[in-house]
Amino acid sequence: MGTISSFWAYTRKSLTAGLIAFTVSDRFACISPVRGLSMHPTFNPHTTSSLLESLMDDHVLVEKFCLEKYKFSRGDIVVFRSPSNYKEKHIKRIIGLPGDWIKVPHQQDTLKIPEGHCWVEGDNATSSFDSRSFGPIPLGLIQGRATHIVWPPQRVGKLEKRLPQEGVVQY
């Protein structure tokens, strides 16, 4: 009898903890690891290859309060679902907001970002799959905004807004 009741109590406790964890990570903030080199050198300044080194991938704090109003500013680093595969999440920097004009690389013309969309780019232009290949993305795909690096310990700090100098034409 004792084992069953203690098992029940344990199950209840872990269920409650799970519920609270889900709610906090949906509503307030969560921590997610950053893989890949598309945001180099802002994230993952050292190229990692082995399993042990990948434990030292940057982990960022992603806040969710921005999802209530969907108000973003240029230079914010956001986490969003990939437009071509909803199971993947990408982390990129917002370069342009609705109404901005963007000079598309390798093309001559500029493109106006439609209402409710944004233009995202990785900081590492050479190895980044971003709006330069799939175009502007709907703001509704955004899952949160990265504000701080929380892991590894020597890189803990606030992320600042930064914009590349060329490319954007604002009106």
């Binding site: 679902r81 990939s82 071509s84 595969n85 909803y86 509704g140």
Partner: peptide, 30 residues
Amino acid sequence: VPKGHLWIQGDNIYASKDSRHFGVVPYGLL
């Protein structure tokens, strides 16, 4: 329809703002 996207339409095609206006939508918006 490209990969990972959907074509959505309202049943009332005369009074619906849907994929005919804004094009295909990513699955992630569902």
